[in-house]
Design a protein around this nucleic acid. Sequence first.
DNA 1: GACGTAGTTCGGAAAAATCCCGAATAAGCC
DNA 2: GGCTTATTCGGGATTTTTCCGAACTACGTC
Lengths: 208, 208
Amino acid sequence: MTDEPTVFVVDDDPSVRRSVVRLLESAGLRVEGFDSGEAFLEHRRRTGPACVVLDVRMSGMSGLELQRRLSATGRPMAIVFITGHGDVPMSVAAMKGGAVDFLLKPFDDEALLAAIDRAIGRDRAWLLEQQELAVLRIGYDRLTPREQQVFALVAAGLLNKQVAAQLGTSEKTIKVHRARVMGKMEAASLADLVRHAERLQITARHPD
Amino acid sequence: MTDEPTVFVVDDDPSVRRSVVRLLESAGLRVEGFDSGEAFLEHRRRTGPACVVLDVRMSGMSGLELQRRLSATGRPMAIVFITGHGDVPMSVAAMKGGAVDFLLKPFDDEALLAAIDRAIGRDRAWLLEQQELAVLRIGYDRLTPREQQVFALVAAGLLNKQVAAQLGTSEKTIKVHRARVMGKMEAASLADLVRHAERLQITARHPD
DNA sequence: GACGTAGTTCGGAAAAATCCCGAATAAGCC
DNA sequence: GGCTTATTCGGGATTTTTCCGAACTACGTC
């Protein structure tokens, strides 16, 4: 998984696909072409930063349908739509679905490249976010059930004494769990631990 | 400022405006009509949850221009566009600008009401977020310069001793500041304080 | 049954934070 | 000169957290 971005071009019209691929390659981008949404869905794998250039109107799976499928996966890749025969409801649906842009053919080369740039930027930010979350989740998964409970309550701001009362054990025991949580979550301070809990959306209601 | 939502209808065509106003009123919504973007910008004031139904093509300020002006204000209100003569680039620009929906006339009454519902929901969420942030900011503004420094460093996870070293004072002094920060920020625990710092985007780099 | 591992439990000593009281210094304002 | 605010400390009692080690149970493996 390199840091070099990849653009997936999905279009069932070979001539359009070739010309788009050539344009992007001449701009120094790594490109892979597919002649249908089905082919793209099968072929995809873990990659570095990427985006999709997608024709809305295709035989077989439509562009909007592919967009839905993609957003249902764990990797909601950024999409730039291109089309020769687009209408307003279609473009609005695409944008509501999270598309980066929706370009009408014939489009400006510059416009497409600019849209792809934004799309890759968005994907890069998403990847970075996911990588950071993955590290946190790995730590969290190593917590025992008891430690997870203590984690939630400590991050909610309860004192060890209160956590102990809540869980029906002694304060001393909570101290041990707490120390293990700090270690496994690689939190250098309570502030760190609270921030990690926030990002993992770990919550516990504070009993008044 | 009540909790009852208001819909602002901006359209320079009196007949369209009247019919839209009538539709929304019959749906139980509070509605105010304007015949131009300029009139709307002048007339607006603090309100409860609200949204804007906006014609893209108007004499004077266009709908897209009004959208830009609105997003530059402190209150980026949710917009539902309606138009008789919309094209794809126009709708894409509107959606990229954050519009909730972009409807072509003649549109379904149901479609408009559904879009307005989503728009008001979005504005409600925004208002709630702003209210919570306002409370935090009021607390933060009451902090003295020194207290703000201590706040940032404590929220970053430093011990009192480390904060003292960083600011060149004694640990005892930091404890006093810290207690005042907790009080003014209405933080019941350090976890609370860290979360408040997060939402206010208060950061301080931790010197290794 | 013996053995290793993981999870939960707890004691005690040292460090850190909190809370109560009070107080000195300096800057700015009327 | 008085008044407020900000910043800086002290002392002592209390609470909370951290770090050392260690016992007990449950579970699966050999």
